[in-house]
Design a protein around this nucleic acid. Structure first.
Lengths: 159, 159
DNA sequence: TATTGTTATACTCTATAACTATA
DNA sequence: TATAGTTATAGAGTATAACAATA
């Protein structure tokens, strides 16, 4: 729920309970809050590894699709190809990915994880799995499948 | 192991089979996709009005809590007070809100909507309601309450 | 001509810290 | 000293447009 953050304990700097109005019962509003909480929780878990959730998604896509081109990758996570250049340069500089020119078409790169990139992705996956266990616990085994189906339906029909 | 994607040549209208791996069955991942789709859908609906979802939330909070201070407002939507200054300046310049000094404490402002701001909020609410009807249709009446309860549980327990 | 990836640029959203004017 | 709001600045994250190399 939308908690007016943390000013309880007698410190009445203005009547703190904020009225969120009709939003409180809306799917869209609560979807945003839940996603934000989930995101923050995962970011907390993976902080020590040093990769934020968004960057991790890119790394995972490369690991899952070795040989993918930058353009295909940019389409896969819905961002412009120009936003990938600095990110991939950083990954390459840190030895996490490898960029090789294709033989057939010398404009494109083929992206793949290095062993170091694969190890990092493994650590990130461990974090994600821990986070997923937290979510599963909160959602509950009984409702999980139904909940997941609805999320997918929203993505499919509103995307 | 994952198949190399997009080895098809030719036009393939951006529909390249990318492997998302284990993420596809994870709550966190699908929560993010659903929220993103919902957000985009709402942004589409409210585009002609000229306010983005984030700014609208601020306007709504003011409308719902007349007399609120900037600091309380910043806490209410979880952002630093300094991020509010340019936004509120813009709202005031466009005649959507009114800032009055309080009598008791001349450091603080009391924020409220002007009639024009109230009208704009009304339009935005119409959009939001249309969006909410879309979401309700997708979620389904039978599952709505349960779905909402789970979203709130996630926010409460992971926030 | 069209496409891949890069560069230049800009806009949004957010944060931190230093500042002012009050308290 | 502490608080309300402002300013300056910086850092992600994203987008568009122009470009060079290649197709």
């Amino acid at each position: 729920m939308a908690r007016p953050p943390a000013s309880r304990n007698g410190k009445s700097n203005g009547a703190e309970p904020v009225d969120y109005g009709p939003l409180e019962n809306w799917i869209g509003f609560n979807l945003r809050l839940a996603q934000s909480a989930s995101f923050a929780s995962f970011a907390r878990l993976s902080k020590e590894i040093g990769e934020r959730p968004g960057r991790m998604a890119t790394l995972r896509l490369i690991g899952q699709n070795p040989g993918i081109s930058q353009t295909a990758l940019s389409r896969a996570n819905g961002r412009d190809k120009s936003t990938l250049t600095p990110l991939l340069t950083d990954f390459a500089k840190r030895g996490l990915i490898r960029r090789t020119r294709t033989r057939g078409d010398r404009r494109t790169y083929r992206l793949a994880l290095t062993p170091a990139g694969d190890r990092l992705l493994g650590q990130l996956t461990d974090c994600a799995q821990e986070h997923e266990r937290d979510l599963d616990r909160v959602v509950g085994l009984r409702d999980r499948a139904r909940f997941l189906a609805i999320l997918r339906k929203i993505t499919a029909e509103l995307g």
